[in-house]
Design a protein around this nucleic acid. Structure first.
Length: 424
RNA sequence: GGCGUGGUGGCAGAGUGGUUGAAUGCACCGGUCUUGAAAACCGGCGAACCUCAACGGGUUCCGUGAGUUCGAAUCUCACCCACGCCGCCA
């Protein structure tokens, strides 16, 4: 949720900041909010002043009754103004509900450091490692996965539909190995506290992180009006919803290993080959809570934690800073980590590291107390995948493949897999 | 799923329909005392919103939402959640 006070203070500047997203549909609600906000405040002021008057008279009634004095005149006045009070109250409430409804559709303000432009303006911050040449002899991961018996996409599709992969044998074990490797790394070396959250969440929780109300179509919904999580970000960020964190609690990080479910409703036929884009996948997610002044540093730190996974796996990757027009709805600033996949011949996004500033915290009511006795303030929330499994698996298979059709297991995974090579 | 009990401030825990945002205790903050700390004593201490240049003023909040009433933490209804017992079950 945007800060209405910022909009009120300088609507022009606010509008320009939102305009950087190059999304016309984001500006329309901003313009409506200015008018709605004015109308709402006028209604509140009017309703509250009548209430104040009525409260004073009610107190006078109580005083007189105690002293056994007549109060019929006041009672008549109160009865007469009762209907008007209800009316004014209702008007204010309706305006407030509309105000909130519209406000929830406005995206976060881009961070000042974010470059202008659309996806074409995304900036490569750094490239790490040496890319294995995409020569003709290299196989894409879907061929390797099939020949090595690591996953069976046709049978996965038989169970559910396309985009629901079935891993088996060493492939299934690789999934488990990646989970353990990543969790061990983040808990032991990066100081994260491990959580295992619910995979179904409610509407208010999804509204807190920003998936609702705008992106309902992207998720799977149950008959109980619960949603399968599209990312662990949702339950983990909301752990502290409607809470005030005590002084000294910040900053801290949580890590969770969960499946993620995404309908990918509008992306059929687009980069869907093999494991590149699937409806269900596993992911280890980092979530951090920070004081506002500290969040940029926390963002860099967390991005480094995600990069460390790629580093340990010996994979070549690059870090992209997304331009304002390509940054997600709730995010103020995002770094994408793209891993090099020589068999596919493409850079694949394996992580998105974002700071949400106070946008999610406002929606979810996550605050902290800077020091004992001080006023609560909204925290800053951040998260990064570290990493999403399918594309990590793609990169491992394609980068570590050998001329004889086998795949060497990266050093750090061997103790989890028990083998140093995938063979047919 | 059935029956029952309960949801009050950071925590614990009172609360006859009328100065109750809410007693009391703990915690916390400031002060006195002390070489220092503790103890003791004194004072303070919820959140959100509207308004105001500011001082200040006002409104709302006792699980959520409706209702009764001039007035609701207190009465009524619905819903949610927690706990207990029974049933079912991985």
């Amino acid at each position: 949720m945007i800060d209405l006070k910022l909009l009120r203070a300088d609507p022009t500047q606010f509008r320009q900041a939102i305009a950087r997203r190059l999304d016309q549909s984001a500006l329309e609600p901003v313009d409506r909010l200015v008018d709605l906000d004015r109308a709402w405040r006028a209604a509140v002021t009017e309703a509250e002043s009548l209430k104040a008057e009525r409260n004073a008279k009610s107190e006078e009634v109580a005083r007189r009754k105690k002293q056994r004095e007549p109060a019929d005149d006041l009672l008549a006045e109160l009865k007469a103004s009762g209907e008007k009070g209800k009316q004014l109250d209702l008007e204010a409430k309706q305006l407030e509900a509309e105000l909130e409804r519209v406000a929830l559709t406005v995206p976060n303000l881009p961070h000042r450091a974010v470059p202008d432009g659309d996806a074409a303006a995304n900036r490569v911050v750094r490239t790490v490692g040496t890319q294995r040449a995409a020569d003709a002899g290299l196989k894409p991961h879907w061929e390797l996965g099939e020949s090595l018996g690591l996953f069976d996409l046709p049978r996965g599709a038989k169970l559910t539909g396309s985009g629901f992969p079935l891993f088996r044998g060493q492939g299934a074990r690789l999934v488990r190995a990646l989970a353990n490797f990543m969790l061990d790394l983040h808990t032991a070396e990066h100081g994260y506290h491990e959580v295992a959250p619910p995979y179904l969440v409610s509407r208010p929780v999804l509204t807190g992180t920003g998936q609702l109300p705008k992106f309902e179509e992207d998720m799977y919904r149950t008959s109980d009006d619960l949603f399968l999580i599209p990312t662990a970000e949702v339950p983990v960020t909301n752990i502290y919803r409607d809470e005030i964190l005590p002084p000294g609690a910040l900053p801290f990080g949580l890590v969770a290993y969960t499946p993620c479910f995404r309908r990918e409703a509008f992306s059929h036929g687009k980069d869907t080959r093999g494991l590149i884009r699937v409806h269900q996948f596993d992911k280890v997610e980092l979530v951090r809570f920070s004081a506002p002044a500290d969040s940029d540093a926390q963002h860099a730190l967390m991005t480094g934690h995600a990069e460390a996974v790629l580093g340990h796996l010996g994979l070549s990757y690059r870090v992209l800073e997304l331009a304002a027009g390509d940054t997600g709805f709730a995010s103020a600033r995002t770094f994408d980590l793209e891993v090099w996949a020589p068999g596919t011949g493409a850079w694949l996004e394996v992580s998105s590291s974002s700071t949400f500033t106070d946008f999610q915290a406002r929606r979810a009511g996550i605050r902290y107390r800077p020091a004992a006795g001080e006023k609560p303030e909204f925290v800053h929330t951040l998260n990064a995948s570290a990493l999403a499994f399918p594309r990590t698996i793609i990169a491992i298979l394609e980068n570590y493949q050998n001329a004889d059709g086998t795949v060497t297991v990266p050093e750090v995974l061997r103790k989890y897999l028990g083998v140093d090579r995938f063979t047919p």
